[in-house]
Computed example of a mutant assay.
Amino acid sequence: MSIFSKLFGTSNPSSDEDNGNNSNKPNPDINSPLDEQFIYNFKKNGGKFLYCENLNEVKDQFENILEENDWFESEALCYEPKLFSLLDENKIVYTSTKEPKFLLSSCENLVAEEGSILFSSNQIKQKKPNDLPTNIIILANTSQIVEGKSDGLSAIRKKYLREYPTNITTIKYFEKAKEEDFTQYGSSAKNLYLLLLEDL
């Protein structure tokens, strides 16, 4: 049984709307598994988490997101050819010049201790987080969860031995702060969906 089954009591949990707010769940302690820490912090930051056991579920959940937001036959920002087929299947034009409805991307790592997404130029070229569309859909694997940013940077160094990527950055805030929060100063909140594929 996966950690997600234990957390959500089902083999295919989806978003907060389907699973309740989980606000009555205790904060995971420092000894909790990394995936549990990541999910708790990611959702606390306002991210929308959708767990997928296989690629068919990734496609289904992606279509659910498109339907929920009325994004069918629209335009998306996507720099990764491996993701183009997902857009083609849903008649979505991928562009880098016009005003896209959303960004479709993978990521380098998922940072458990702060619930953030770590990107590099391989996913977002030289764009800064504030220059990206407000709506973002991320595809990631459970094996990409790391404890802290330093672990994410180490993983990038190991993964790219020769062509080291640039523009390494994180996105952490997925909803506007309800009150003035100086930690969010200069950051624009993103409406972010994470399709997390079990690969462990």
Rank of each mutant, 00 (worst) to 15 (best):
V93D: 09
Y94I: 06
D35K: 07
V111A: 04
F49N: 05
K172D: 13
G20R: 08
E53Q: 15
D181F: 14
L194Y: 03
E99P: 04
N45S: 11
L161H: 09
N191G: 04
L200D: 15
K43W: 00
K59T: 14
E57I: 05
E108T: 01
E179N: 08
N130P: 15
E99F: 07
P165G: 06
M1G: 01
E17Y: 14
L197G: 05
I171S: 03
K149F: 07
S154G: 01
S14I: 11
L139F: 05
E163Y: 09
E114S: 07
L87I: 10
G46H: 13
T142S: 05
S150F: 15
E67Y: 07
Y185C: 10
I65M: 05
L196T: 04
F182L: 13
D151R: 12
S74N: 04
D88L: 11
E147P: 11
E75I: 02
L103H: 07
G152I: 02
P133H: 10
E36G: 04
D151A: 12
E75V: 05
P28D: 06
L132A: 03
K48D: 10
R162F: 12
K176F: 09
K101Q: 12
L118A: 00
Q184F: 14
T10W: 04
I138S: 02
L195I: 05
N64W: 03
K178G: 03
K43P: 01
S5R: 12
Y173E: 03
G186C: 07
E180K: 01
T166A: 13
T134C: 12
L192P: 12
L34C: 03
L153T: 07
E68S: 15
V111E: 02
G152Y: 00
G47W: 00
D151I: 15
F84E: 14
T166W: 08
L103C: 08
C107L: 10
P33M: 01
S2H: 09
S188P: 15
K127W: 09
A177C: 15
Q144P: 13
L194G: 00
I171K: 01
Y94E: 08
G46S: 10
F102T: 03
I138W: 00
K158W: 01
Y185H: 09
N90V: 05
N12T: 13
L34A: 02
A177L: 14
D16F: 13
S121Y: 08
F72Y: 06
P81T: 13
D29I: 06
P28V: 11
A177S: 14
F42W: 02
A140M: 12
A189P: 02
T169F: 10
G148Y: 10
L50D: 06
C78A: 11
A189M: 05
D88T: 09
E175M: 10
K178I: 15
I124G: 14
Y160S: 09
N141C: 12
N122G: 15
K98S: 05
L110P: 00
I117G: 00
N135Q: 14
N191F: 03
S32I: 00
L110M: 08
K176H: 08
K149E: 02
K48V: 13
N12G: 12
T142Q: 01
Y94A: 09
S106Q: 06
T142G: 02
K82M: 15
L196S: 04
N90R: 12
E198N: 15
W71K: 00
P33A: 11
N90M: 06
I171D: 02
L153Y: 06
T10M: 08
V111G: 15
I124S: 14
K82T: 11
I39W: 00
